[in-house]
């Protein structure tokens, strides 16, 4: 019973993390990088991020598809929003959320990604934390990380001065560790802040922006740096680095989505329409409203539908019959 409950739970996760890290490490050494060098191990952590986030791409694609389908239900969604417009008390908000969720279910679409990606990320985060701690403390690894590799990983350092296994709290006066941790905290706060701000400022409908939930979220946004300062003090540099790279991935992914598949009615959607109109003008194309759907780009037929409020329900039915 030396592992304990959480140790047992984390064991398979740690095994997988070690396998991925060692896999990337051997690829990188094969490519000519020095086995014990900090860069090699740092890049292995980047590799871990890439593997995990790539695994989550199907989830992400599904989310995009759902978001496109949202256009079909947007009239019904708007009906719900109109019904609760100006009602900001808790009960109305709750009733509105319930109706919205029921609507999603009825149409078999849901713009939310589910809790699974989060649930997948958290154990990996703690698993990496534990692998790194073990490696730094010289404890036995659980899988493919041999004692030699483990020792290398534990003492591998960023820029040759700051070991990945150290935290701000355990830095023991190592100035480089403290400085790098602070820089990482600033970068993480910055990237998270930008991602959230992107979503909140640009990708939300005006109704959403007036809700009390939005205001609460906004306050919390400014508390974020505190969370990261805390984590900067207690998480080893390697884990912080993993988190940071993952954040960058999210940011880029979010940027692409907001630019190309914005929430209907949001600022980003308006900006996108303006951009598309400009493009059309440049090419001398006619307004998409009087164009047939066959010859235009993939996203444009959706817009055609949106501009015909009269026949929308019928158009939708016809679309379904067409087997879209």
């Amino acid at each position: 019973m030396e592992l304990g409950f959480f140790g047992t739970l984390l064991w398979p996760i740690k095994w997988v993390i070690e396998a991925i890290l060692v896999g990337f490490h051997s690829l990188l050494t094969l490519a000519g990088l020095e086995s014990a060098a900090g860069v090699t191990w740092v890049l292995s952590i980047v590799g871990l991020v890439i593997v995990i986030r790539a695994l989550l791409i199907p989830v992400f694609v599904r989310q995009i598809k759902s978001q496109r389908k949202m256009l079909e239900i947007s009239p019904e969604l708007k009906k719900i929003q109109d019904k609760y417009r100006g009602k900001k008390d808790q009960f109305s908000r709750e009733a509105m959320s319930r109706e919205t969720m029921n609507l999603y279910k009825k149409h078999g679409t849901n713009p939310l990604s589910s809790c699974f990606p989060l649930l997948l990320q958290m154990p990996i985060f703690f698993g990496l934390f534990s692998v790194l701690n073990d490696a730094y403390a010289g404890r036995d690894s659980v899988g493919l990380l041999t004692p030699e590799l483990s020792a290398e990983f534990g003492s591998a350092s960023l820029f040759g001065v700051a070991p990945l296994g150290l935290t701000m709290a355990t830095s023991d006066g190592n100035v480089a560790v403290i400085i790098i941790a602070i820089v990482l905290v600033i970068l993480m706060t910055g990237s998270q802040f930008l991602t959230q701000l992107q979503i909140m400022a640009k990708n939300q409908s005006p109704e959403m922006k007036n809700s009390p939930m939005y205001r609460q979220q906004k306050i919390l946004l400014y508390l974020l740096p505190l969370v990261f300062v805390f984590s900067g003090a207690f998480f080893p540099l390697g884990v912080m680095f993993y988190w940071f790279v993952s954040n960058i991935w999210t940011m880029v992914q979010q940027f692409i989505v907001i630019r190309n598949m914005p929430t209907p009615g949001s600022e980003a959607a308006l900006a996108r329409e303006a951009r598309l109109a400009k493009k059309r003008q440049k090419k001398g194309l006619p307004d998409p409203a009087d164009e047939a759907s066959g010859s235009v780009a993939v996203e444009e037929p959706i817009k055609t539908q949106r501009q015909q409020p009269v026949s929308k329900s019928r158009a939708k039915k016809q679309n379904k019959k067409g087997g879209r």
């Binding site: 959320s97 319930r98 919205t100 969720m101 999603y104 849901n110 939310l112 990604s113 589910s114 809790c115 990606p117 989060l118 998270q192 959230q196 979503i199 979220q217 919390l220 946004l221 508390l223 974020l224 969370v227």
Partner: peptide, 18 residues
């Protein structure tokens, strides 16, 4: 719910959230 949840925004596919 106060500290970690807001980092990820709304993700849950159910109401109430997980």
């Amino acid at each position: 719910r106060a500290v970690i949840s807001p980092l990820y925004g709304d993700v849950c596919r159910y109401y109430p959230s997980c």
